[in-house]
């Protein structure tokens, strides 16, 4: 019986994840479209790595920039939403283990969630 429940929970989470991917792709496509309208004939240079602009690398500059309509910041927001989908999956599983009263796996999945959040929010 629990096996079945596990699977139902996973399928539900799977649908949530797919929705997340669709939303993030939608945002990214809009950003790319706006970028190409502005800069279709610009010559891109990816031969030499010089890191992208600082504003696109920090969460609290990137998000407001996206809402101001900067194309590259909108794409980056889409990327952030995408990065959030596996994190959401782990968070859902913490909840589903808690409902099953499986303390050991609440701890294991909680640890994975903490590792993810620390690396995404605080890593340097």
């Amino acid at each position: 019986m629990r096996r079945l429940n596990d699977k139902q929970v996973e399928i539900l989470i799977g649908h949530v994840l797919r929705a997340g991917v669709l939303v993030s792709c939608f945002v990214t496509v809009i950003g790319l479209g706006l970028l190409l309208i502005d800069h279709a004939t610009a010559i891109p240079n990816y031969h030499v790595f010089h890191s992208v602009s600082g504003r696109l690398r920090s969460l609290h500059q990137l998000v407001p920039d996206a809402f101001l309509g900067h194309p590259t910041a909108i794409i980056q927001l889409g990327v952030l939403l995408l990065i959030a989908t596996p994190v959401a999956r782990v968070a859902f599983l913490v909840g589903s283990f808690a409902l099953e009263r499986d303390r050991m796996y609440v701890a294991v999945s909680g640890l994975v969630l903490v590792i993810l959040l620390v690396s995404i929010l605080f890593a340097v």
């Binding site: 790319l32 690398r57 980056q76 889409g78 990327v79 990065i83 596996p86 995404i120 340097v124």
Partner: peptide, 28 residues
């Protein structure tokens, strides 16, 4: 795979490895 990748994606983003104009067409 997705969870593993998310763990390094934040570091990549902050290091400036994720160029929007390249990442967008690749991801889609």
């Amino acid at each position: 795979i997705g969870v593993t990748a998310a763990a390094s994606a934040g570091i990549y983003l902050r290091r400036g490895y994720i160029d929007p104009a390249l990442a967008a067409p690749v991801m889609i």
